[in-house]
Design a protein around this nucleic acid. Sequence first.
DNA 1: TGGTTGATACTATAGACAGCATGTC
DNA 2: CTATAGTATCAACCA
Length: 759
Amino acid sequence: MTRREAAKVGVKVADLPLPPELLKILESGGIQTLYPPQAAALGPALAGKSVLLACPTASGKSLVAYLALLRAALAGKTGLYLVPLRALAQEKFDDLDRFKALGLSVGISMGDYDLPPRTLEKLDILVATSEKADALLRKGAPWLERLGCVVADEIHLMRDRDRGPTLEVSLTRLRRLRPDLQVVALSATVGNARELADWLKAELIESDFRPVPLKSGVYLDGRITFTDLTARDLTGGGEPVHRLVRTVIEEGGQALVFVNTRRASEQLALALVPTVRSALTAGERAHGEEAASRLSGLGEEETEGVRRLAGLLPNGVAFHNAALTNPERRVVERAFRDRILKALVATPTLAAGINLPARRVIVRDTTRYDDRVGMQTAIPALEIQQMCGRAGRPGLDPSGEAVLIARHEEELTRYLDDYLSAGPEEVRSQLASESSLRTHLLALVASGAASTELELRRFFESTFFGHTQAIEEMDATVDAVRAFLVSEAFLEPGAELKATAFGHLTSELYLDPMSALVLRGALERAPLGVRPFPLLAAVAATPDLPPLFLRRGEERELLARFTDEENELLVKPDEDPLRLDLEFFLSTLKTASVLEAWIDETPIVAITERFQIGAGDLRAKVEDADWLLFGAQRFAQKLQRRVARPIDALSLRVRYGIREELLDLVRLRGIGRVRGRALYAAGIEDREALRSASLDRIEAILRSRELAKSVLRQVGATVDPQTKPVRAEGRPPEGAPAPAPISPPQARKGSRTLEEYHR
DNA sequence: TGGTTGATACTATAGACAGCATGTC
DNA sequence: CTATAGTATCAACCA
């Protein structure tokens, strides 16, 4: 921090021009003085001016955002907090919810937790992912008309190739909708903060202030050389990572290690056990056991990966990656926060997500495999610095240390120069790419934001791209994309920009037009009904469902699968609009096979083992497929009505992971894959059968009286223990609900059409 | 012959948003 | 194009 900033540390919250109730809430939250960047930003922010706050993580940026939103809300306007991650949305929502005491209502809107439109209209402040905000803009929510303040958190993510354009477009649209809109943009330190601030017409507040001082450096041969050219020699010996982990634990701190593959996260965590274990007290080990038992208490099937994780926890180490389900991740994060874990080895899941600081951050890898180029590429300095920024826990660590690991002298200087001392990359608009324009051009037209070429041009001129680059650079791509959208019937031909019904639907479903095309093609091939596998394969061939990696040996099996199903497949490699190569095509078959196993009630463990994926991956694929199938179903309603209902059934099967026979039971609240199967196995095959079953019997099957009551109430039965018992031949429930067998009893699941599912 | 070591080839590779209408174990 | 760690395979080598 600079000397001038230091002088401002003393700014008192109590002196701020805020309503007394608000001050009370802040002070009860332990916030009494402001950090320099906060103090600098609050003036303009509370005056309703736009600000760009570019400083390290954990420097209290959110507080400025909260106060700006509250000010707007108290002035009778609405406020929108844009975040890049669902987990972050939850975090911000929880924070903002404390201000309910001011009589304000706060809401959250994201994929898995949405608001009905009527509720939205009553909100003062909404926390949403940028995609959700984009969707809101496409639908034209009246709520947005009253918007007074928008917060763009992690605005540097605008440089992200895939999701950056959504943020850029949303911000642009909001600002055009409300020309007087106050924008509070929060950013990591980036190379061109000035440029971003200019675009937003915002006051720029740049600072490298950190509440916990950070020293970053590079490790080589037992010594850390810091950017300030001081050095520190570490005691003992051993492999670099082990030594760095051991020494920080000896000093009473924790270590967070970033690696570039999942496998590395697991293996390194395992390798660290001897190093960490010896530093643990008996009490800590016991807490680790507790955390491990919490893992199995999640009620999920125990996959190989989770078993390994559970085995690590009592040793004070764990790994964290996207193969874990969200609840599993939460357990690990909590254990680390509670200091039960001394070391955590993570992939970038943790770098961008929720705040989980450690005294020492070790960045082991500086390169990462890039699928698109088929090779390792350098991780941008911006991301490395984000990881480094996780070092130092406020209140717990006197200072934080971030360490890269060099293998030789040359690397040491290179890391110091390129990664730690040098400024991070500039934020560059990714809007001009074909894929992003495809989506956003359609959305702009479909939602009426641009109906002439001139309007479209005006819009793009007001984006960050237009602000920083000659708009003509975009022309060729815009023309090509527009021609594509017209030729594939998303847009009407002619000079006027107008979306077709298909185009509108695509945009409202929030689908990539390319995905819509794949789905439309699949439906056109299926005039007489579709079987699950080919439709799942079509869904998997969509660019909205990222492919799974193919493993050695799987290729042959999948190729055989292809030959088997050849005549039924809805998307074939050579006809695929994306003209994907065979490998990609096979990987879509792999995804389809995973989903097929899932709706065949194959136990999760069996799926994860057979396909070598994590439970988290399965979850993600199911979620994606469920969403896409909804889209397919809506398309079918318009294009192929006969298959709409069967697709609906398939969608439900994917959501719950069930065979067709459980479709009826699963409609009940509280009944899913496992309980549905338990009921079915006990001879209660549908809701009708449930109606005449006794409460005691249901309770015995579901192992919960409350649940049994609720279920019976739902089918309209009287919740009376005396109700007459039902059919006696049902298998008595014993132990946990029996998992479904891996292979189906006899009927091959592929042997009937989807239409038959729904007679 | 059996076992060890070493050269070489081969394999695999981060993350996570959205619709809709409310609740999986 | 800008890679690397872990693992499998097999030949060379030694006792």
